[in-house]
Design a binder for these strands. Structure first.
Length: 479
RNA sequence: CGGGGCGUGGCGCAGUCCGGCUAGCGCGCUUGCUUUGGGAGCAAGAGGUCGUAGGUUCGAAUCCUAUCGCCCCGACCA
């Protein structure tokens, strides 16, 4: 329950975020360092996210399965880059049943290895391909610096793992999924994201190509919101995932993996939230509209509740996720603030005056105060609320897109780049060398986020070294 | 891992330097009455091995030793 004012975003963005997560009732700190409890309200939001994605995965031919949490340590040593990437953050089980284990077991930080092992068992012929499996679950990475939803030791996600007979099909899969992520982010979460390819240094451990969607948070830092990887034959060779093709030749598979996590919730918070609290996109909000009845006397209560109950039933019947706040131990003013903290898109106030006039007060969460409040007739309220939800969804995307666009700049020279990334994203030509990337990071703490797919046709020169460059990249400080 | 800070009712803190009666305060919680259109008021209550263990002392939240944990700041990560 919300009881006090939030630290404002301008005072301390990080503190604003920490307080908001707790006060909006999304999650709480668990007794184990770096672990979180996702509370029912936060989990319902996650369920709405998973439902939308799961539908798209299935529509594109994927099926769900479950692989074990524990993975033999030796599996990680089979792919060199993979083990080097993940070794520092593995949690390892050394004992079972009171006995020291012969081989330590890793609590999965991601499942490429065990799934690769299983795929090797399952794939014999080109007829077995492609394999398109997704898993919903949690993974563990021993993080040193944690933050609820953005970086916790254990987090929830989906990981898709596919095996194909040729590189074209595998790459197509990688791009198909990235599109699903981007469309989800834009259309469901109202997050304007950029799609692109990661640089060599930012690539996933063991991948040949990593693509990502990147969003800009209100502090102008970038947040990688989902990734889709093409592995080539790296994991197929490490785990001997082989098939006999139509010409009776033994071939290695081409594999991919892709994931989207509860970090998405962090992106929603930091993109849409304001100083009153959480602001949820209507399509994902656990509660889309809340009714706050207002009355003084028992006689008023009877009249108000009759109308409020009728409205509740009507809106529910029209498919709106609606909540009646009939608590009698807190004031109406408290309820207004409370639901604003939780980010409910629409509030419907019903008081004695509304009963007389046949109206209600509608307040939209994306425009706090008087500006977002209007008085509408009770008749036809279901369609009024439905269209308001659509308006809010669109307004959130528009606002976030304008914010992002007004904070991406093209630097004239290297000094200009330094200035830009101190408070925004820089978009510029880059020669794609590790050296220039490292120099920017050292000078500014900004990293390359991704190289967007949409590129100008003409070439340019690297913003760091001046060498001829084919593509532009986003530089930004990132979470 | 390096640097800084903190452990006292559910939460936020005071008290610790300089040991002393029954460990306080705010918020929240319970009950009752009055309230309710932007974070209500009054009254009466419940709730604490002072992180843990050991030591010094007539007496320890306070002094000593050890230990555990958490938060913040610096190198990797969805």
């Amino acid at each position: 329950m919300a009881e006090e004012k939030l630290t404002t975003r301008s005072e301390n963005f990080s503190e604003w975020y920490n307080q908001l997560v707790l006060k909006a009732d999304l999650a709480d700190y668990a007794p184990v360092r770096g672990c979180m409890v996702v509370k029912p309200y936060g989990w319902t939001l996650w369920e709405n996210i998973t439902a939308a994605l799961d539908k798209e995965f299935k529509a594109t031919g994927h099926v769900n399965a479950a692989f074990p949490t524990l993975i033999p340590m030796s599996f990680f040593e089979k792919e060199k880059a993979h083990v080097e990437g993940f070794a520092p953050e593995l949690a390892v089980v050394t004992h079972g049943g009171g006995e020291l284990l012969e081989e330590p077991l890793v609590v999965r930080p991601t499942s490429e290895t065990i799934i690769g092992y299983m795929y090797a068992k399952w794939v014999k012929s080109w007829r077995d391909l492609p394999i398109l499996i997704n898993q919903w679950g949690s993974v563990m990475r021993w993080e040193l610096r944690t933050k609820l939803f953005l970086r916790t030791a254990e987090f929830y996600w989906q990981e898709g793992h596919t095996a194909h007979s040729n590189p074209e099909e595998a790459k197509e899969e990688m791009f198909r999924i990235l599109d699903i992520y981007a469309n989800f982010a834009i259309n469901e979460a109202a997050l304007p994201v950029v799609k692109g390819t990661k640089s060599d240094t930012e690539r996933f451990a063991g991948a040949q190509i990593t693509t990502s969607i990147e969003g800009m948070m209100q502090d102008k830092k970038a947040l990688q919101s989902a990734t889709s990887h093409y592995f080539g034959q790296n994991f197929a060779k490490a785990f001997e995932i082989q098939f006999v093709d139509q010409n009776n030749t033994l071939q290695f598979c081409e594999t991919t993996s892709w994931g989207l996590s509860t970090r998405m919730i962090g992106a929603i918070i930091m993109t849409h939230g304001d100083d009153q609290g959480l602001v949820l996109p209507p399509r994902l909000a656990p509660i889309q509209a809340v009714i706050v009845p207002i009355f003084k006397t028992a006689e008023e209560k009877a009249r108000v509740m009759e109308v409020a109950d009728r409205i509740f039933k009507e809106l529910k019947a029209s498919g709106i996720r609606i909540k009646m706040d009939d608590r009698d131990n807190v004031s109406s003013g408290f309820k207004f603030n409370d639901w604003e903290m939780r980010g409910v898109p629409v509030r419907i106030e019903v008081g004695p005056k509304d009963v007389e006039k046949g109206s209600v007060a509608l307040a939209r969460r994306d425009k706090p105060g008087r500006e977002g409040k209007s008085f509408v007739p009770q008749s036809g309220l279901d369609s009024a609320v439905s269209s308001l939800l659509v308006d809010i969804q669109a307004a959130l995307l528009k606002r976030a897109t304008e914010f992002r666009d007004s904070n991406i700049h093209e630097p004239k020279d290297y000094d200009d780049l330094k200035t830009i990334v101190s408070d925004g994203w820089a978009f510029s030509y880059w020669c794609e060398s590790k050296e220039c990337e490292a120099k920017v990071k050292e000078d500014t703490k900004a990293t390359t986020r991704n190289i967007p797919f949409d590129q100008p046709t003409e070439t340019g020169s690297c913003i760091v070294c001046g060498k001829p460059s084919r593509r532009k990249v986003y530089f930004a400080k990132a979470y």
